[in-house]
Structure formats: C-alpha cells, structure tokens
Design a protein around this nucleic acid. Structure first.
Length: 761
RNA sequence: GCCGAAGUGGUGGAAUGGCAGACACGACGGUCUCAAACACCGUUGAGGGAGACCUCAUGGGGGUUCGACUCCCCCCUUCGGCACCA
C-alpha cells in the first residue's frame, strides 16, 4: 500500500492470474488464490512521509481502501480468510522468528563493510536494491559508506541458488538474469608476498595462465593492508587518493570509460611465478568487495591493466601468443604461452590448471571460485519495519530475543522520520532500547534497526495457507499439502530481488528442517508492464491510469478482459482505451445472444466448429495466451450469431451454455449472470470446464494447398486421407494449376498429406 | 562492452518450417433514423489490371530448404538487464 490506490498494472496482473485460477478450478484442480499486503517497508513509509501521516494509521486506511473499494471489484476469487498484512504483529512475529533462525545458524552476521547508503531515504540498502547506481525506491544517487551492519550470508548459498535454477519451470530470461547476478567465476587465488615484510597479498584471477606477465599489483583504495604498506615518502599522495576515492559515488567510480587513476604505494611485491619484484599500486578500478580486493595486473592481456600501465608507464610483457600482438591493445583471447618458463608452448586453457597446480605445490596459489553476488544487507535505519530481534549485552554481545518473547513490538513513536544519524528513529525511544540480557539478566540494549522489506516478502507464501495458527509460522501438514507454489505470476522487477531472496530463505528453512522442499516457486511466469504513451506509469510523469473510472464506466469484466486482450501477457503493453470499445461490443453481443428471446428453432447445423473453439480456448488459456483466447471466443460468438436461426433448440442451448462456461474465467460476473438466466444455478464457477470430442475436431475435408515451385497456385477442397497420386490428379485437373504444368515433367513433388502439394518444375 | 527480448498493414496484434495479416481498433461505403447515437451489413497490406487474376511484401543483407515471419550467419534499430567483476 505505497500509494493512494491501485493502478491498472495491478488490474492487469491480478486479472490474468485470476483468469488462470478460475480456469484451473473449472478443470478440476483445487485452487488457492490468496491476496495480502506487503505493508511494512520503505515503499509504504515514504508514502506516509509524503502524506505526513504516521504509517500505522495510513496503512490501516489504504489497505481498507485497496481491499474493499478496489480488489473487491475486480472479480478475483481471493480467499480473504487467508490474507496477510506484513505490518501486523501476528505476521512480523514470524519474520523476526526467521531472523533468529538465521542468526542461530550463523547466517545472520554483523560486520563492517562498504555499503550502499541512500542520502534521501537515510538508510543503507542491499546491493540488489541499487538500480544503476540509484536507490530502488526514490531514485536518489547512492553513496558508499563503511558501516557495521547486519547481513544474511546469501553468498554461502550462491552455488545452490545457481544450480537449483536448472530444475525450475521458469522463463529463461529470469534464470539467466539470476545466474548473471550470482555471477560465478572460476579461477585461482594467487599469493604475492610483500618485499621486506611478512605481509602477503592474495589476488583473485580467472587467468592464472598469465601470471608470468603480472608486472604490478593493484589494491582497492579501501583494502585494509594499504596503510601498512605505504612508505613514508608516498603517504601523503596515497592518503589523498584514498580520500578522493571515498568521496566519489559508485557510479563515478565504476564508469569503465573513465580514465584510470591511481597512486604508487612505494612498496613492492614478489611475483610468485617469476620471483620478480613488482610495484604495488592503489587504484579505484579495483573493487574491494570483489574477489580479494586486490589484483595482479597483466597489462599485456587485460584491457584495464593495459590502459593503466600505459598511463603510468609500467612494464608490459607479452605472455600469450597471438596474431595481433599487444603493441596497440591488450590481447585477451586464448593462445600459447610464451615468456613463461617451463610452460612455454602450452595452450592458455591447459596452462590455467597447470600453473595453478604448480603454484599450489609451492604454497602460493590454489583454485578458487568467486561470485558477484554479495551478502544481503538486511538492516535498515528506518522506523516502518520489524525490529531486528537482537539484544546487545556488554557481556554476551549480540543475543537473539528468546522465541517466547517474540514479537518485539514496533513501538508507536511521535516522530517516525528517518534521522540521518545512521540510527533508526527507534534509537530515541528509551523504553524500547533499554532491556535486559536474556542470558545474564544484566542491563542491555535492543538493536534499533529494522529489517529489510524484502525479508517480509521472502516468506509470505508460507504463511498464506496457515494464517489460522498463531503458535507457529506455518503448519507442516498444511505446507506439505499446498506448497511449493504451483504457479507464480511475477513482475520482471522482482527477478534479482524478491525471487532471489525467497529462494534463499526457503533453502535456509529447508536446511534447518522446517520445510520439506527447497525451491518455493515451481513454475514462474513473468507478466509485462502496462505502460502509458510508452513510459512506465508514475505520478511525476502524470500518466497514471486509475482503473476505478473505467470499472465504473464499462464494468470490471469488460475492463479486465480488455486489459488481457491488449497483447501477450508476458510482454509490455501500452495502454490506450481506443480499442476498449471492441471488447465492450463483444460482451454486449454475448449478452443479447443469451438474453434476447430465442429465435424459432431451425433444422439444425453442423456442430463440429464448437468443438474446435473449445479446444482453441482451452489451449490458449493453458499457455496463458489470454489475448488469443479472447479472440477465439469472439470468433465463437460470431459463429453462434451466424447460425442462431439455423440451430435446433437443443443445439442452441448447448452452444450458449458452452459460450458461458468458456467466458467464466475471463468475465466472471457476466458469466455468472448469464448462467443464472439459463437456469444453471449457483455457480458457473463450480462447473466443469467444457470438453471437446476429439472425433469432432478431425475434419471431413481439408483444404489442399497446391504450390508450383513453392508459390501458392490453388486451394482445393479435398477429402481427408487423400494419397499423393490422387492429390496430383486433383491438382492437375485444376484450371489454375494446369497451365503451369503444361506437359512438363516435375523434378520433384512434395506431398504433405492433408495439407499441401508442392510441384517443383 | 557483455547478456536478454523484440522489429509484421494506418494502429494493437495473429501465424512454433507449409494459405502472411486471425481477432480487434480505425477508416470508407451502406441499412435503420426527421436527424444523431447505438446496432447491423460490406470494403479495407501495397502496386497493376475492366476482369478472372498477376506482381511485390514480415527492419536490411546473405544462407539452408521443394518451401522461411519462423532455422543459421552478418548488420541496423528499439527496449530491458548487467557492467573497471580481474
């Protein structure tokens, strides 16, 4: 509830999901379709700040409006008995419980790290929540800060999260994006000893085969070892450089096109392969969070190192053979090794293993895998979230709140504004902060940060079927019956946030023995965005379309159906109400067809087409192609109109009954009304989905397409089961085809029975 | 730079190697009406032809195939994602 109300994107998504739910139910599946409110978090809180109303009051108001004035009208079959609101104590009690489980398992840890800070939301953010260098919520440029924060060790699950993708029925797009985000890289960690000291600098590389070409070492400016290495003569320059790097934004620092900067520390390291003395530099093109925060620079075979070496006049050695050489640019491709001692002549691929093994024997290297994925920064210096259930004791350190004391209630505060001091508004609530240590009973203080909203939403699917229990987060039997989720309709924006976090939390709970499965969503389909004039809808653009007006004007069925008719569900669709009239006309025609006095029965018609339409609608709904399902329904209703007077009474009844049933998932209200008027009783949504007779699908005649040299020349109605000779005879007799044949002998004839005859001359 | 999706009439889109443009919108013509709206009927990719019909046409260029919107290669454009990730 982060806005005044829902927009048409919600109507679109929920309409599609509900159409699928109703369709599945009519096909005999037991369907659970829940809806709830992700009410905690920055999104709601920022809205409350803008309205200057305490989020507690505002959330109560908005959720009421969403539920009764909006969601209640779109005709979705939500089970409101099993709704959740993440900001209610009976929900966040269990969010806190999950935090405690992770803490006990050593997966929730407090550590100092370079983290993302949003200067507008005045809180830290997880890496996933920084979009193109900007805050996911407010769009402000994010800055880096060294802070002590709570993290979930999602990186420990990197391989599982990656490997698990293979088994999932998810769109390739989302699997690829998650895989790229996890960013597994295989290589080696090599050790460069520091000259004249016991210090050792481990570096990560994916190219251990090029170690003989490593002519200098570069440390990230934040690397802990830098102050210890820097010589007195270089200290002023290096300190100034570190200071300027710290002041720069992530965007500035990670712009690959920018000219390289750096400073020499005055210290030297020893190349473990050559034994050569190589200078140690600091430069911000090396990132402290990735690998070891240090690299061996191989300017001959890495573009960044090449640019750096050229600028600062550092030696460049060629160790991989290539046709192009390294006179003008680094050569980054494969080749044979040169200038590499006993490895000369070996291919770079073979050398990767061989060189690593050789260095490993000497204790200066080992194979290593690293990831782009970073640990999930979970704490927020904000008010509107579940307090992190930890107590800080001077004796016992960070102690989890005992489970029987959960929830740690979020206190009501006079001022909920973020402070900007690096502490949550809760820090100023003395009655909240002051407590006793659960271990020793001595005076202690509560953690005052709240947890990330994405933790609230990382487990709600476990709670939905179990809302009647207050003494457990989820019930084992109920869970086993309903989960994992069979079908998840999600937005693309969730792929490397919510979907990733939900998988992680599910895996952890599985490993701790709480869940019988480790993947939460068996089947996932991404829906597109509804745009307006080609742009994402937003208040600032002033292009937000409110569904309420349309629902008032044409009814929720027509509006829902229209949104689905706009285009493929998984693609972005631009909203314009120009075509809305097409769907309302269609539904008006259906209405008249059913409610107008029946015409005098005719002598009867061939009912086979009805079976074909049933099949088409079923198939299209089965693959979530709602727009083509509606097109098929339009054709079907047109077919009924055309034959309305020819039907005998029984046929007409059957045709109309089928139409009503096929419409039920798409226009639930209308179908119910029409069903009642046919004497169907309550409810159309509890009827069986119409079945088609396969025998009726098979055609009695086919349209034989006749081509000459692949060009269409004639279409001939022909009986089914025609053999090639008969087909050729038929084609030869055609006045359109005969002139082309003109006594010539075909070089080749392709006959696809029942479809096509292609004569190649 | 890397990864992904897409490019088809005036418009939204359909067609998963076999009839390109289903279904709609819009436009044009007509019926109904004093008139309008609604509704209904017809036409509607482009070019040629009196006409039956013919030719061209799915971002551009090549290829595979009897046959390509569909598969392969190269290129262009748009949109998303990732990005000094060693």
């Amino acid at each position: 509830p982060s806005a005044e109300g829902l927009h048409i994107g919600h109507t679109y998504t929920y309409g599609g999901a509900d159409t699928n739910g109703r369709f599945q139910r009519m096909r005999g599946n037991t369907v659970f379709e829940p809806m709830g409110f992700d009410a905690f978090g920055i999104h709601s809180e920022n809205y409350a700040l803008k309205q200057n109303i305490n989020p507690m009051q505002l959330t109560a108001r908005t959720t009421k409006r969403y539920r009764y004035e909006q969601l209640g009208r779109i005709g979705a079959m939500y089970d409101w008995e099993h709704s959740v609101d993440t900001s209610q104590p009976n929900y966040y009690k269990w969010t806190q419980w999950i935090f405690v489980q992770l803490f006990k398992a050593g997966l929730a840890i407090r550590k100092e790290a370079a983290v993302n800070w949003c200067p507008s939301c005045l809180t830290v953010l997880a890496n996933e929540q920084v979009i193109d260098g900007h805050c996911e919520r407010c769009g402000t440029l994010v800055v880096q800060r060294e802070l002590t924060q709570w993290f979930f060790s999602i990186t420990k699950y990197a391989d599982r999260l990656l490997d698990g993708l293979q088994k999932l029925d998810w769109p390739d797009e989302s699997k690829t994006r998650q895989a790229n985000w996890i960013g597994r890289s295989e290589g080696a960690e090599l050790v460069f000893a520091v000259e004249g000291s016991d210090e050792r600098i481990p570096v990560f590389t994916t190219r251990p085969d090029t170690v003989f070409g490593a002519t200098y070492v570069v440390l990230a400016p934040e690397h802990k070892i830098v102050p210890r290495l820097t010589t007195a003569a270089r200290r002023a320059e290096v300190d100034a450089y570190i200071e300027s790097a710290r002041a720069a934004t992530e965007i500035e620092r990670t712009d690959a096109g920018r000219e390289k900067t750096g400073e020499f520390t005055g210290a030297y390291a020893i190349n473990p392969a050559t034994g050569a003395r190589v200078p140690i530099w600091v430069a911000d093109y090396v990132l402290v969070q990735y690998g070891t925060g240090a690299i061996m620079a191989v300017p001959g075979h890495d573009e960044r190192d090449y640019a750096f070496a050229r600028k600062f006049d550092l030696p460049i050695v060629e160790v991989i053979t290539s046709e192009v050489g390294i006179a003008d640019a680094a050569y980054t491709g494969p080749g044979a090794l040169k200038n590499s001692g006993q490895f000369d002549g070996l291919s770079s691929d073979e050398a990767k293993t061989a060189v690593t093994a050789w260095l490993a024997e000497r204790g200066t290297g080992e194979p290593r895998v690293t990831y782009k994925l970073r640990d999930w920064l979970i704490s927020r210096q904000r008010y509107w979230g579940p307090p992190i259930p930890i107590i800080h004791c001077p004796e016992h350190g960070s102690v989890p709140v005992p489970e029987e004391d959960l929830p740690v209630l979020l206190p009501e505060v006079a001022d909920f504004h973020p402070t900007g001091t690096g502490k949550s508004p809760l820090a100023s609530v003395e009655s909240f902060v002051k407590t006793t240590c659960p271990v020793c009973g001595g005076p202690a203080e509560r953690e005052t940060d709240v947890s990330d909203t994405f933790l609230d939403s990382a487990w709600y699917f476990l709670r939905y079927p179990c809302t009647e229990w207050d003494d457990r987060p989820f019930d084992k039997e109920r869970i086993a019956e309903w989960l994992p989720v069979d079908m998840y309709f999600g937005g693309k924006e969730h792929v490397v946030m919510h979907h990733l976090y939900a998988r992680f939390i599910t895996m952890v709970l599985h490993d701790l023995g709480h869940l019988p499965f480790e993947e939460p969503f068996k089947k996932l389909r991404l829906h597109g965005f509804v745009t307006k004039d080609g742009a994402k809808m937003s208040k600032s653009r002033g292009n937000v379309v409110n569904p309420d007006d349309y629902i008032k004007r044409v009814g929720s069925d027509a509006f829902r159906a229209y949104l689905l008719f706009m285009g493929p569900f998984d693609q972005d669709n631009d909203f314009s109400d120009q075509n809305l009239v097409g769907v309302t006309r269609f539904l008006d025609r259906v209405w008249r067809l059913v409610t107008d006095p029946a015409p005098t029965p005719g002598t009867g018609v061939e009912l086979r087409p009805m079976h074909r339409y049933i099949k088409r609608v079923t198939d299209e709904l089965g693959r979530y192609q709602f727009h083509t399902a509606i097109a098929a329904l339009m054709e079907y209703s047109n077919w009924i109109s055309t034959h309305n007077e020819a039907f005998n009474a029984e046929q007409r009844r059957e045709a109309i009954r089928t139409l009503t049933l096929l419409l039920a998932p798409i226009t639930p209200f209308l179908a119910e009304e029409l069903w009642e008027r046919q004497g169907g009783g309550y409810s159309v949504h509890q009827q069986d989905w119409p079945t088609f007779d396969p025998a009726q699908i098979v055609d009695e005649t086919v349209t034989l397409v006749v081509q000459i040299n692949g060009k269409l020349r004639d279409r001939i109605e022909a009986p089914v089961g025609l053999d090639e000779a008969a087909a050729r005879a038929l084609a030869g007799a055609s006045t359109k085809v005969a002139p082309f044949l003109d006594g010539k002998t075909p070089k080749k004839v392709i006959y696809v029975p029942g479809r096509l005859l292609n004569i190649v001359l």
